[in-house]
Amino acid sequence: MKGSIIYEKDNTTLYVGLPEDIDHFISEDIKAETDAYLESGCIRCIVFDFSRTVFMDSSGIGALMGRYKRMKEKGGKVMICGVGDRIRRVLRIAAIDTLLPEIEKKEKKS
């Protein structure tokens, strides 16, 4: 079963609410859909929200790094939020925890 990815655009920031499991299967969607938002223009920052995520393998790392490189070329940035213990361990083993600044989870607008 494929989890859902939730996209929310706020001004020039794209929030990507990641699914429970991030593997090769869903990574292809994350890449294609996030890039479609980037094509539509004026995104300066992507925030990947891991609040729901409990599993990620190296395919997820590939998707994150691909977006990181793309944003860096355009002078934009990629940040992460909602990172739990498991994802922190995976990011650390991939040695990309230092590349992606972590921010507090955005408050839901009422």
Binding site: K31, S58, I61, G62
Partner: peptide, 15 residues
């Protein structure tokens, strides 16, 4: 071309 991280075997070794 597939934007693979190249970390598959490294992850197997690490975990």
């Amino acid at each position: 071309d597939k934007e693979r991280s190249g970390m598959g075997f490294s992850f197997m070794e690490a975990f």
